[in-house]
Design a protein around this nucleic acid. Structure first.
Lengths: 329, 329
DNA sequence: ATGAAAGCGCTAACAG
DNA sequence: CTGTTAGCGCTTTCAT
């Protein structure tokens, strides 16, 4: 009761395996009669192609590997990205293999995997600036794209991302339009696109008013949002707005503000970024910037597929964000 | 400049491919001299085994597929589970392929994939009661385990989970110990283990006091927490505590309570479940029940590996939860 | 302890 | 249009 092979199908249809292979691969040059007989034989035997055999001879892997770079963040966004990538890849009959590149051992594992020809392409997620794996991967000659820019490698690794800078500008402009005068910012880590570009967008709008005193750096965590806000409050007691580069950090800032007796948004307006699940669980609910995560994932896959199909190069793309106004600002 | 094969390694070492294969697979019966020569040749050539070829002859897939059932996809917990599963699987050189089974088409795709022998085992996540795919999968004779019980198939699909019922008991006992008298509950969907068993644990402790009036059903979303709380308040205005089966629903309840002018925890104590990222972003931060998610994922993989290694059957396991006391109760 | 050889299931080039 | 054939790279007897 072994699984049927192409041989069994051929026997059942009374036709050679070569022809069976042809109909399997949608080749032209197959007589209708043969095609019908074979299709019936396939249905009868319950035949399913053996990918190992197929990929062995085709010298392909039949899969794409998504590499998650460790550090912490319990980013609720990952799930959306993964789902959309799977969907899109599935349409092309490519499977999605997940790997983690958190420490050197794991990075080595990814490299071995990819160099071993086990993947037809690489989908990077949240890769850090200066990650040595990136160049090695790229040097291996395998298609590599990233969901979100890879800082320092923007020109070598194509990517799809949301318009980080533009999104931050939207928020900053909104805060200004609401009459806020002293607007502070809690940025993300400065070796990530979200950390860098959201600050740039903020500075675009505030100009010289975006003084050093009004900028604090966080690491995307709730705790870092709390401490950054505390420092800001100490330095600039009369600030009347703060833009946190993520909803999670914004929720931390909210805690500190409440502890300090500031009312939100009356005394201090608070803006977030991501529109993650956290945004509606805070009090007050966060005014934030929504990223078109699903679209970003789909576009990333599109770039990867183009590369796999042989495109010499593809153009990175930034998708527009939208401002979601709730009660915090 | 093709990738080196086992043949190249053999040539470089001046030894037959058979022996090279032996050292590759840690076979005994290889002379130290040969082993050393081969290992050097492997390093020199940069050889990496071709999985397609290996799996073809071994009649294995070399991967495990994790099947995500659609709906509660926003669950921040997925990421932790995925991470831990990848880690554990990686130790055995198995890769993790992700698939989604949200609609019939996708379920069919999963079935084809698995029946096609493309996976050595199946790791189910958040599968619904009555999902037809489960029986088919199990009937296909491939090892299948679930992270969290599959309602109605607890005895046929082995699983690892947290002690849902015990965790709910912890929360209920805590609320009672704090002197709360009228304790309500917002459950999850009653076709999920978390929905059913957390209610059971609640009832274990409250006994007859867990009357119908005090129970509302939610669907894990923030919005359902809001409306459930509203109904509860209308029915039992003098309730003094509420236990929501998830942090997200608890955050919804918090909103409704605030809108109704109830203070938390003074007037109404609120308990959650999961200790997800939402738990610390609410105001006040949630007292909740923590699930040992990483351990659950690891144990699930352990069961699957045992099955793959030929175990006739394995025992499901429930891991203890812990009560995390914050300010909401 | 190791070499030789027979495939694993499939595709693709080549005749016809 | 279709049958035949030569591998893809690796593991695994079977001899030796």
């Amino acid at each position: 009761m072994k699984r049927p092979t192409i041989h069994d199908v051929a026997a059942a249809a009374g036709i050679s395996r070569g022809t069976v292979s042809r109909v399997l691969n949608g080749d032209r040059y197959v007589s209708p009669a043969a095609r019908i007989a074979i299709e019936r034989a396939i249905a009868e035997t319950g035949y399913v192609v053996n990918r190992n055999a197929r990929n062995l001879v085709r010298q392909r892997a039949g899969s794409v590997v998504m590499v998650l770079s460790e550090p912490p963040f319990e980013d609720p966004n990952y799930t959306t990205t993964i789902r959309n990538a799977i969907r899109r890849l599935g349409e092309r009959d490519l499977s999605l293999v997940m790997m983690i590149a958190g420490d050197d051992r794991e990075r080595e594992q990814v490299l071995r995997y990819v160099r071993g020809g086990h993947a037809d392409g690489v989908f990077l997620l949240s890769t850090h600036a200066g990650d040595p794996m990136v160049d090695t991967l790229h040097g291996a000659g395998i298609p590599v794209v990233s969901c979100g820019a890879v800082i320092g490698r923007e020109t070598v690794i194509p990517y799809a991302a949301c318009d980080e800078r533009g999104g931050a500008r939207q928020m900053a402009e909104y805060l200004v339009s609401r009459g806020r005068k002293k607007i502070a910012m809690i940025t993300g880590p400065m070796d990530t696109p979200g950390g860098i570009q959201r600050l740039e967008g903020f500075a675009d709008v505030l100009g010289r008013k975006a003084s050093k005193k009004l900028i604090e750096h966080g690491d995307w965590t709730h705790a870092s949002g709390e401490t950054a806000m505390a420092r800001l409050l100490e330095r600039v007691p009369d600030l009347d707005a703060v833009f946190a580069a993520s909803d999670v950090m914004a929720s931390g800032a909210l805690h500190t503000l409440r502890a300090a007796g500031r009312r939100v948004p009356e005394d201090v307006a608070v803006g977030g970024f991501d529109d993650s699940s956290v945004a509606i669980s805070t009090h007050p609910p966060l005014t934030t910037v929504r990223q078109p995560l699903g679209d970003v994932a789909r576009e990333t896959v599109r770039l990867l597929l183009a590369l796999i199909d042989g495109a010499e190069r593809v153009d990175s793309i930034a998708l527009p964000t939208s401002l979601i106004v709730r009660d915090s600002a």
